[in-house]
Amino acid sequence: MSGKTISILALCLVLGLAGTAFALSDNVAQNANKSYQTVVLSPSAAGSSATGSASVSVAQMSDRYRVSIELRVNKLVPQPGTVYEAWLVSSSNNFSQPIGAFGTNASGSGTLTFREDMVNPGIFDKIEITSQAKNGTNPAPGTEAMSGSIAPSGTLNEIVTLKGNMGPMQEAPPNSSAATGTGTFMLNTSINELSYDVQFSGLEGTETAATLHGPGSYGQNAPIMFTLPMGSHVTGTLNVSQSQEQKILQGRTYMNIKTDKYPNGEIRGQLLVTGMQQSGQGDYPEKQEAGDGEDQKEGNASSSQQSDNEPENEGGGY
């Protein structure tokens, strides 16, 4: 065998090993260890009715961490001449990293998405929202509008409790039923399971379906994600995808009880992480204005369970 032939074979071997290394690297990225938690954001000013949450996921890569944050606020009314900006804050190191600036509509609803690779995201222990005259490199003193604590990386929440108070005024459009109900949900992000305990009373019609919908905010109708058993008190467990988990943690899913008198729904309740403001027994909270179009575009209606690989269903659904 000539020296030239040996060199060519050696080169092919090196390229083959390199290709294998890249494939393994890609595989690690796709199967990285992930942790999730929901940070409940509370208003800093006394008397403020603002609510908010930030869904935080951290994926461990080979030499870094991929951090994703989906932040949503309600009733955070815009202030003239200022801009809202979100920050990751390390209290012990007196260090802040900007997540991004965002606006809110007339009713105070706004969203922000952040994704970035970090070497040591564990130093951050707080998410803070400020209201400043312009974007800055650090939060200005006295400008904090909302904040929430981030759990240490070793104690990220694997089980998240959500609750939905059901009533007729959350239906879109609302109705005059006197029925009420509650849905308590436990989301286990480590095994992708959602357990539920749903009960109601006082229906004016005969129940025809119990369904979980999303993604959809208050006042929006969304496709069916899951169909639950019927009955005035039911319990069970569902398998959920990571995409569905994110929508649930973002407060973009709702429980709906349908009857023959109200085919599109007699009572409904938005699922919110425990600790976020609930508005009575299914009363209608501050409605989000139109414009959050992604809530209407994502998702695919299904009689039982939605697959992430199925085509999207444009528009809302009952």
Rank of each mutant, 00 (worst) to 15 (best):
N74S: 13
A59P: 02
E85C: 14
V58Y: 02
V56E: 12
V89D: 00
V58W: 03
A59V: 05
N74L: 04
N74V: 07
S44K: 15
V56D: 01
E85M: 14
S48V: 14
E70L: 09
V58E: 02
R66E: 15
I69C: 06
S68T: 09
A46F: 05
A45T: 13
N74P: 14
D63W: 10
A50Q: 06
P78R: 12
A59W: 03
A59N: 10
V73L: 07
S62M: 13
S48N: 02
A45H: 12
P43A: 08
S49P: 12
V58K: 04
S90F: 01
W87M: 01
R64F: 09
T51C: 06
S44Q: 05
G52C: 05
D63P: 03
G47D: 04
V83P: 01
I69K: 00
W87F: 06
A59T: 09
S49E: 08
I69S: 02
P80V: 06
V89T: 06
R72P: 00
S68M: 13
G47K: 07
L76I: 12
R72V: 14
L88Y: 02
Q60S: 04
G81F: 14
A54N: 07
G47A: 10
G47C: 08
N74A: 09
A50K: 04
V73M: 00
S49M: 13
P78T: 12
L71A: 02
V73Y: 00
V83S: 09
V58P: 01
V77S: 14
V89C: 01
Q79I: 12
D63S: 15
D63Q: 14
T51S: 10
L88G: 03
S49D: 07
A59H: 05
P78S: 09
P80R: 04
A54W: 00
Q79M: 15
L71V: 07
A86G: 05
Y84N: 09
G47E: 07
L76R: 00
P80W: 01
V56G: 03
Q60Y: 10
A86V: 05
V83T: 12
S49I: 08
V89Y: 01
A46D: 04
S49L: 04
E70S: 08
P80A: 14
